[in-house]
Amino acid sequence: SAVVMEEGSPGEVPVLVEPPGLEDVEAALGMDRRTDAYSRSSSVSSQEEKSLHAEELVGRGIPIERVVSSEGGRPSVDLSFQPSQPLSKSSSSPELQTLQDILGDPGDKADVGRLSPEVKARSQSGTLDGESAAWSASGEDSRGQPEGPLPSSSPRSPSGLRPRGYTISDSAPSRRGKRVERDALKSRATASNAEKVPGINPSFVFLQLYHSPFFGDESNKPILLPNESQSFERSVQLLDQIPSYDTHKIAVLYVGEGQSNSELAILSNEHGSYRYTEFLTGLGRLIELKDCQPDKVYLGGLDVCGEDGQFTYCWHDDIMQAVFHIATLMPTKDVDKHRCDKKRHLGNDFVSIVYNDSGEDFKLGTIKGQFNFVHVIVTPLDYECNLVSLQCRKDMEGLVDTSVAKIVSDRNLPFVARQMALHANMASQVHHSRSNPTDIYPSKWIARLRHIKRLRQRICEEAAYSNPSLPLVHPPSHSKAPAQTPAEPTPGYEVGQRKRLISSVEDFTEFV
């Protein structure tokens, strides 16, 4: 048969007729292969192709491409040299491709048809291009793949890379869960390890502090508590009631339409708007009261037996805890006409967050109470924005700035309102402590230090009264110190430094 060459192609190359033996071998191979691939376009007849790359030819070592076609129900084999250009295909004639002069020997084609199974398996396991790669995943090629499931790999992101949580363990979102698992493993320790309690022994800490320079003076030496005195035992138990972190309780009120001037209507609300609910979820963490331990979680007086509701929101960081007394989460009882059960919590909070959804101005004093010092007013606006402002009593104007209003988005509203309420509550605590000038409020841990110092002074006084020969370590507060001759004046800087060093040991009130 003659071949018409394309323009620009090399000279004529004689194409030899395939021997009958080659056709029989390739026909047997075509019957084993699956003929249901995917359909081509209507211009080209339905056909199945599979590209198999052999590394070497037997005796020649030339890479070839073998295409199996099922045109007219008769499979045909096409061998081509890759750099050459194939002729145009037609549905009426068999596929013809040019070969190099080196394939002119018909014996070479017979060798190609009689490829060993080793070469076929190696060509099938190679990388296939384009559409033949999808075909190689079918059941027909499963014989050339190794048996057994593939090893499982770690989760992959859409980009093909490992997620960040699997790369950096410290930033993994499941870090707290692993800590819980470690605690569970520790709890399952053997009885021999049960006595080993991690941490620092208080006796060891005391020993280090006792021999430090801070205890060089007799006034700073630790003293032993009497065991037989019940009054001192009660004082030590009272110390446990003062937490070592700051605590805040903040009221949250929802004002519906037409309720801006009605205290009873505001306290009777059992739910609010959708934006109000989203605002609550951002204030803190939802907790169930019956599962809380009052000595570990500050509840601000809420009952854990269901008297004040089942849930509330709280927030904490390293040095403070805040609980929100939310009116809509507290039960509304029919027998309580004046809502006294709610007001006994909300009316005693220094700061209230008022979500004013009424469309009218909310005035300070609508919720009557002796300790309502500051109101954080949240007014929802259009386009997911809110107006946040402050209202306070006249005696609080020096501590709280009420002249600045803020426009905040719904997303950042819980954070801004919480921070403003916490700052206002700190100012309210300082303002409330002014009624007792001898006990200015600095912080909870300073209050613990003052309680310890008062307890020490009482013990020293009782020891001096029981044994008059012992001198008083600290003179009583009601006694007057003996007159001392004025010492020589020293520079102001040295006096300030000495006073600062003494105050650092005794108390921190002056620095606050």
Rank of each mutant, 00 (worst) to 15 (best):
L224P: 15
S403R: 09
H271Q: 10
R434A: 13
D361W: 03
M420D: 04
A483N: 09
F371K: 14
H375M: 15
I440P: 14
D382S: 05
G309D: 08
M420F: 03
L422M: 06
Q241N: 12
G256E: 01
Y441L: 14
S231L: 13
N386A: 08
C314T: 14
G496P: 15
L399M: 13
W315A: 05
Q237C: 08
D318V: 06
S403Q: 11
F371Y: 12
R234A: 12
K394T: 13
L302N: 15
I319Y: 11
S268T: 08
L390F: 08
P475H: 14
H248G: 03
I353P: 00
V304T: 15
V297M: 13
D349L: 11
A417V: 11
T402N: 08
E257S: 06
D317A: 02
P380C: 01
D317G: 03
R285V: 09
A417D: 00
E384M: 06
D308H: 08
D291L: 08
E510V: 07
P471A: 09
L286K: 11
L264K: 14
S477P: 12
H431Q: 10
P476W: 10
A417W: 01
P294K: 13
N412D: 02
I223K: 06
P380N: 01
R456L: 05
P491Q: 13
D349Y: 08
Y465W: 11
I223Q: 07
P380M: 00
D349M: 10
S262W: 03
A463F: 15
V473G: 15
G365L: 03
F324S: 02
L283P: 00
T485S: 10
N412G: 05
S352I: 06
C385D: 14
L470C: 13
F350Y: 05
Q484E: 14
Y276D: 00
V388D: 00
A322H: 03
V408F: 03
W315D: 06
V297W: 14
K290H: 08
K337N: 15
T277M: 12
E397F: 06
R456A: 13
N269H: 02
L280F: 06
G309F: 08
D317I: 00
P482M: 11
M330G: 04
L346W: 04
S244L: 13
Q321N: 07
L422W: 04
L387D: 03
M320W: 14
E278L: 05
N436A: 09
M320K: 02
Q310K: 12
Q457A: 11
T402E: 06
H432C: 07
I223E: 10
G306D: 10
T438N: 11
L449Y: 11
K406W: 13
S428M: 14
T379G: 01
K221F: 15
P476M: 11
S435C: 13
N467Y: 14
S466I: 09
H478S: 14
P491K: 08
G258K: 05
Q429R: 10
